[in-house]
Simulated scan of single mutants.
Amino acid sequence: MPHGHSHGNGCSHEASGINNPLEMGIEYSLFKKIDLENMECLNEEIENSGKSVFKPFEKRLDFTEYVKSDADEELLFNIPFTGNVKLKGIIIIGDDDDTHPSKVRLFKNRQKMSFDDTTSSADQEFELSRDTSGQIEYATKIVTFATVHHLSLHFPSNFGSEYTKINYIGLRGEFTEAHDHGVTICNYEIRPNVSDHKNNLFNQVNHQIQ
């Protein structure tokens, strides 16, 4: 039987494996709801490599695809969804060395963030432990992340390396399709404008006199 314990920072660790892999795979399927065409990763060494870390839960241990930072250790993901997400948890898998990120900061519904924007307060942040197999989940504040259409993940630091390397990012939660309800604007004439009707009235009066 798996047993877990909380680390107090929203992190839960399953000591003997991650629950039922099939159930976890379903819950961690939010990667399918990412608008990958418009997703961006800032400071990635290889263009579009940031997109590769979002993959099926069962492929979380496939490290052939990863993202590596370029100029320094920072990485910033701007992740638009194709609908609304209730984000419940996140998994970060890296290598068992100093390239593993040591912190992640979460920002909701702030599109096209740059590194300059990350100086503002995050909606939530976690101190990360080295995790090479997806054993640690960081639980988000459900109330805060109940309706998310865009998520930014800022990794400001690692454990001492000149660059940061991430193999997998898993997002757990619920997805709701976005409904585009058209807005119909109706203009109602509450009080008739006399100037609009006086000519008609005048003509009607003249006609009756004649």
Rank of each mutant, 00 (worst) to 15 (best):
V104Y: 00
N206G: 06
D62Q: 06
F159H: 12
G83D: 07
I93K: 03
D117V: 05
S12Y: 15
E58F: 12
G50S: 02
I34M: 01
H179I: 15
S161F: 12
H100Q: 11
C11L: 14
T82D: 01
L106S: 06
K59G: 04
G50A: 02
F155K: 01
F107K: 02
V194M: 10
S157D: 08
T82M: 04
F54Q: 02
P56C: 10
A139S: 13
F54Y: 09
K108C: 01
A71W: 05
G25S: 13
E137I: 15
E44W: 04
A15V: 14
L153M: 13
N200Y: 09
K51M: 00
M24Y: 12
T82C: 03
I18A: 12
G17K: 09
H207G: 14
D96T: 08
F81A: 04
T147S: 15
D96F: 10
H3F: 15
N43E: 05
M24S: 11
Y168W: 05
I142E: 14
N109F: 07
D35W: 01
N78W: 00
T119K: 15
F77Q: 06
V67H: 03
D35Q: 06
F159Q: 06
S195D: 13
E73L: 09
V85Y: 01
K68F: 04
S195P: 01
T140S: 10
K55N: 06
L75V: 05
H13I: 13
F155E: 00
D180Q: 13
I190F: 10
G4R: 12
L75W: 02
E189Y: 07
M24K: 11
F54G: 05
K86H: 08
G134P: 05
N193F: 08
D96I: 09
A178M: 10
T118R: 03
I46P: 04
R60E: 02
D98F: 07
Q135N: 15
V194L: 14
I185L: 13
F155M: 05
Y66Q: 09
E125L: 06
N206D: 10
